[in-house]
Design a protein around this nucleic acid. Structure first.
Lengths: 141, 141
DNA sequence: TCGAAAATGTAGCATAGGCTACATATAGAT
DNA sequence: ATCTATATGTAGCCTATGCTACATTTTCGA
């Protein structure tokens, strides 16, 4: 996105949210790629694009960024694969996703709404909150 | 951001999340502007910038976009004000924010974490989920 | 095996959202 | 009344994320 603000004063109420946003898309991609690799055996740009609702050109461009970020490997016409780092991120994302969906459902949200909302919410749940979620779910077993 | 994808096939699991993202920043701004107007009597670019943790130039540029979106009015060196539309959006955002914080706290999340996470989460809570949250809070009074 | 359809990749363009550097207006102190 | 510190505004540059249009590979059926 650019450089960080000079910032001498306090602020940071929104700061974390912002930086999290840059990661959200990466998480969506690796999560989906992990799903495709497990489900279909391969993750191809066109499928990724369709599932994310973007053009294939956009998907390819993003995949290039993921590659630069060390999250995936991809050779032309050969599909996309996760690196160790990518797999780790995907796992974390999926764990969070499941937990968020379970909590929403426990609160009375319909499965469809829970799945849909979790997609956005999961990227903003901190470790602390995640722990509280797990605890809460366990407490009401 | 650009135009929408042609999209004939299904997809849309992430689509909503994406468009919501474009609104998130607008919500943060109008929410903050509402706070400043009520608390300080005026909302000035520099204060907005400091509270959001961005440079004043960035804040001013965003304010120009908010203006184009019909959410605020602003004349040079005269501060920022909310339009009806902006006030409505700010109210909705604040309601959601409060509700999300309350639910998180009810689930055992610390006040600090709840406030911090709500900042990101609130933009992705659908009407359905919001209703479920309200219900849940009411049920355990 | 070969040719067309489908998948991939590339190029070029746009907007959002950041920053720094520089210019201008306002306001407060003297 | 003026001068200076502070607030505002502008310009220019950058990356991320989208899209369309066009080019190039692959793949698959005939």
């Amino acid at each position: 996105m650019g450089k960080l603000p000079a910032e001498g004063t306090q602020a940071r109420r929104f700061g974390k949210t912002r930086s999290a946003q840059s990661t959200a898309l990466h998480e969506d991609y690796v999560e989906l790629i992990a799903d495709l690799l497990e489900g279909e055996g391969e993750a191809r740009p066109t499928d990724i694009a369709r599932r994310l609702g973007v053009s294939h050109a956009t998907a390819i461009k993003t995949i290039a960024r993921l590659k630069r970020a060390g999250l995936v490997t991809a050779r032309p016409y050969r599909g996309v694969f996760l690196t160790e780092k990518g797999r780790a991120l995907a796992d974390r994302a999926r764990t969070r996703h499941r937990l968020v969906v379970d909590v929403l459902r426990a609160l009375g949200v319909s499965t469809e709404s829970a799945e849909a909302d979790a997609e956005g919410i999961e990227h903003y749940v901190s470790e602390n909150t995640l722990k509280a979620f797990a605890q809460f779910l366990k407490s009401r077993e």
